[in-house]
Amino acid sequence: MIVDKINSPIKVGVLGFGGLGQAAAKVLTPKGEMSWVAAADKQGYAYDPTGLNSDAVIKSYHQQGSVGYLEPNGVLSSHSIQDLLANKQVDGYFLALPNLPNTFMADVAQQFIKSGWQGVLVDALKRTSAVEQLLELQTELQQAGITYLTGCGATPGLLTAAAAVAAQSYGEIHSVKITFGVGIANWEAYRATIREDIAHMPEYDVETARAMTDEEVSALLDKTNGIIALENMEHADDIMLELAGICSRDRVTVGGVVDTRNPQKPLSTNVQITGRTFEGKISTHTFTLGDETSMAANVCGPAFGYLKAGIALQRRGMSGLFTAAEIMPQFVR
């Protein structure tokens, strides 16, 4: 896909203003091709067509609990997404929202469809079942004129796309193994993300993790010394690679370690793609992320790269649902 020339900045909104939402605002600040104009959380939204100031919005959120308190551009609302969509000009949104319950992202997508808004949506969904729910909305998204790119974070996302590219060396893919290491100094900066990880632990599920109080999460992390170790996760990398024709989902495995008390990664994040070449040789490609790149950098950067790609698709009249394994992200300058 030829990179479109950006004549005026893409107006971008961020829905959800927890750890990822705040990181997204910081990622957008130096970008000339994108202008951050909208943000929303449970209690309100902020909108400025000339661009929001990330420091001011983050300060407002930390001090008063919502971006809706921002002066003079904040509005308190219990229907923040609906109100923001009503009459604000935004080209695309990054859905930095916790997918708790597991139907939440599909519910948000339906809200966009019903609103009559047309533009680009990008999410960083994790679970296979959540992506399956979005697949059921393909026709509705297309008819609504919405270009939706799903699974566009780190994994699924960056590592899934790397696997799709690396697979080209082979005639047959035997396995795709994704292993991630995440280090954060304080779990409370990423409450929703940590709860989603807990939901993958044995004896836990989405509803259990969602219902946990902060005190209960802290008590669990005390028992594990701050470590969350995960194996054979329900991760949408599998369905994305299957949809892209790379391999069947049963050949894809995802697991990793999250250290909630140390910003250093407990292990290097990587994807290993093993297959057979046309000469009959068995080999493995390994793509490893630099340990210095944070979870936020590896999620938000690709998300906006895919949002830019989504804008290019929409300008060509292409709407509907796409995944990170189908579309190349475009670097946002």
Rank of each mutant, 00 (worst) to 15 (best):
265 K>S: 11
316 R>C: 09
328 M>H: 00
201 M>V: 14
324 A>W: 01
154 A>K: 01
123 D>Q: 07
175 S>T: 11
153 G>F: 01
100 L>N: 04
203 E>L: 08
235 H>A: 08
126 K>T: 07
34 M>S: 10
244 A>S: 14
264 Q>N: 09
8 S>T: 15
224 T>Y: 10
103 T>E: 13
242 E>M: 10
177 K>M: 03
7 N>D: 10
151 G>K: 00
117 W>S: 06
264 Q>D: 14
72 P>L: 09
155 T>L: 04
203 E>N: 14
16 G>I: 04
196 E>D: 09
72 P>R: 00
136 E>P: 03
315 R>G: 12
227 I>Y: 07
129 S>A: 11
15 L>C: 12
328 M>C: 00
323 T>R: 00
298 N>W: 03
226 G>S: 04
313 L>V: 04
276 R>S: 05
96 A>P: 06
20 L>S: 06
33 E>W: 01
66 S>N: 11
329 P>Y: 02
16 G>V: 08
127 R>D: 10
39 A>G: 13
149 L>P: 00
180 F>E: 05
186 N>D: 15
67 V>A: 07
206 V>P: 01
155 T>R: 01
284 T>P: 12
133 Q>N: 13
120 V>T: 12
179 T>D: 14
46 A>T: 13
160 T>Y: 00
198 I>S: 02
198 I>C: 07
106 A>Y: 02
325 A>G: 12
175 S>H: 05
223 K>E: 15
85 L>P: 02
25 A>Y: 10
179 T>P: 05
188 E>M: 07
169 S>C: 13
304 F>N: 04
324 A>I: 06
259 D>Q: 11
65 G>D: 10
91 D>F: 09
279 E>P: 02
271 V>H: 06
253 T>P: 06
125 L>Y: 03
181 G>D: 08
97 L>R: 01
37 V>W: 02
137 L>Y: 01
259 D>V: 13
206 V>H: 04
17 F>W: 03
27 V>Y: 08
85 L>M: 14
192 A>L: 04
277 T>P: 11
255 G>Y: 00
269 T>L: 05
1 M>L: 11
160 T>S: 15
302 P>Y: 07
294 S>P: 08
286 T>Q: 06
129 S>E: 11
292 E>Q: 11
137 L>W: 03
